[in-house]
């Protein structure tokens, strides 16, 4: 009824010759093109031993935006993601050339504390990997590592993190039960809460929904859109539809190189490179 009444108002306005098109504006995905650059990778090469996995990746990732990395298996998108929090450091023989700057600071400089970096750049993995501990202890794991012992403070952090990851309502009455008893989708959201608990600025997601059912996937996607308001998110996904739905920017990787990078709506409606078009339309290979 309300809509009809509102329409009546607009209707009158137009009849009276007010041809302004106020109201009924097209809601666009919030424009993030003016956001500052958060991560800047410059001429980044990455090697596993003698195998070169990344070739000169230069890319500006905007703050408080979702950037999706797509491409066929083995194209280097996950490798690139892992250079952003130096998770590749754990692989023997991995080394890089070029630079990755976060807020202007090169994270591969010798003085960088990797543990601190990883607090700032959280990561959510493909397969949900909660610790076999209680829900509370899972979320409190990070803060405890970093020296928070006060029970009240921890409780506050846990609650906030669970709320932000949209799982609080489902678990608030059983924080002491094992995280292993949650469903796959809940576990993944718990893992996101665990990342949020250490108060990161950037969240890396490595195919966070690929092991989940459609409804849980949708929940994760909505969560990503929510988190984007406060965090810079980089997501690797095999699911192109997912990239289209959740991201503001999309980068297409192939054979360790970045073929195309741009606004998601441009990439998915009118990509510049033919390779990108072939991949997103399934004509690839």
């Amino acid at each position: 009824m309300l809509i009809a009444e509102e329409n009546q108002g607009t209707r009158e306005k137009i009849k009276m010759g007010t041809r302004t098109l106020a109201g009924g504006v097209l809601v666009d995905r919030e424009d993030v093109t003016l956001n500052p650059v958060k991560i800047f990778s410059q001429e980044l090469d990455m090697f596993y031993g003698s195998v070169q996995a990344l070739h000169g990746i230069t890319m500006e990732i905007k703050e408080r935006a979702v950037t999706a990395l797509i491409g066929p298996s083995g194209c280097g998108k996950s490798t690139f993601l892992r250079t952003l929090n130096r998770m590749n450091d754990t692989i023997p023989g991995a080394r890089i050339k070029g630079s990755v700057k976060i807020d202007g600071i090169d994270i591969y400089e010798p003085g960088v504390n990797v543990a601190v970096l990883r607090r700032m750049v959280g990561m959510v993995f493909q397969k949900q990997n909660p610790f076999p501990k209680s829900i509370f202890d899972n979320v409190a794991y990070g803060p405890r590592l970093h020296g928070i012992t006060d029970k009240a403070v921890l409780e506050n952090i846990v609650e906030e993190s669970l709320k932000k990851s949209a799982i609080w309502e489902e678990v608030k009455d059983r924080l002491d039960t094992s995280a292993m008893q949650l469903s796959g989708g809940q576990q993944q959201r718990l893992c996101i809460a665990r990342v949020l608990a250490v108060d990161p600025e950037i969240i890396l997601m490595d195919e966070p929904a690929s092991a989940l059912d459609p409804l849980s996937t949708a929940k994760i996607e909505e969560l990503i859109r929510q988190l984007r308001k406060n965090y810079t998110i980089v997501i690797v996904t095999h699911n192109m539809q997912q990239a289209a739905r959740v991201s503001d920017y999309t980068a297409y990787f192939y054979m360790g190189s970045m073929v195309e990078f741009g606004e998601t709506r441009k990439i998915f409606t009118n990509p510049v490179k033919k390779e990108t078009e072939d991949y997103i339309t399934g004509r690839f290979g």
Partner: peptide
């Protein structure tokens, strides 16, 4: 102990020893 458990801990900013002590050994 699954590698993913170690990764989870490291990615939260734990050192290698913290990871071994808090995650790997208990499991």
């Amino acid at each position: 102990v699954p590698q993913s458990q170690r990764s989870a801990s490291l990615a939260l900013g734990a050192t290698k020893w913290q990871t071994i002590w808090n995650v790997v050994l208990p499991q």
